[in-house]
Design a protein around this nucleic acid. Sequence first.
DNA 1: TTGGGTGTTGAGTA
DNA 2: ATACTCAACACCCA
Length: 274
Amino acid sequence: MPELPEVETIRQTLKQLVIGEEIESIQVNWENIIKYPLVEDFKYLLVNQSIQDIKRRGKFLKFYFDQHVLVSHLRMEGNYSVHKQDEPYDKHTHIIFNFSSGKSLRYRDVRKFGTMHVFKKGEQNNVKPLNQLGPEPFDEAFTIDYFAERLQKTTRMIKAVLLDQSVVAGLGNIYVDETLFKANIHPMRRAHTLSHKEITALRAFAIETLQEAIEQGGTTIRSYIDGHGDMGMFQQKLYVYGQAEEPCQVCSEKVEKIKVSGRGTHICPSCQPL
DNA sequence: TTGGGTGTTGAGTA
DNA sequence: ATACTCAACACCCA
């Protein structure tokens, strides 16, 4: 499900709903979501604490409490929603944060791939998983020079490099395919063979695509919904992802689906020659 | 019914 | 270093 635009949309929508809420108790129905610390300590550290802010780093959500930070990754299908505590929940609801207001924040994840870590404030940036991340796409640290250097020192396929969160944080399968299409670059091109012009275009289109997707509230293909339960709209603006067999909107050639670096990959063979 | 696919990522293997 | 396979898990579809 969620790449950077979806996580950012969840952050924005959820923030209005839970800022200032104090956790009274935590119900854990599937312990494997909680990676650190032990489940009992996880609960102990957060109970009686209030949510001060929600931030984002790459595809991670960060819930800020008084002394600690909850770092949450939604992986494929994780999502958050806010309910009254007496509302029923289903078998895919794995973590429930009950607030003293009578409301609760629920983490639901059909495939149970999501992760949560709690760290002392400040510590989260020095340890896994956050310390592995490359720059934010919108941050000034994501310069052309930095990007070019990372691309030039690897022979991997460009798609694999863009999916690598240590290069730049936040791109996933949808937005990589869309970005490569807009830049007219075939996903199997070796990163070190890209020209300076192509690298510049790639960076600009990645930023632009992510920005536009945020403005559209993300992309809903199957299950993604934001903190209000609303779907995204960016699926209406996709050029290649999920468009196999459809005519390319630029050249009318048939969009193809291939496999690159283990992932389903969508290209226009005419606009993105190898 | 079964196998292959799904928006993610970490581990293990050559 | 890189590529490939598998694993976590549930569901959908041909």
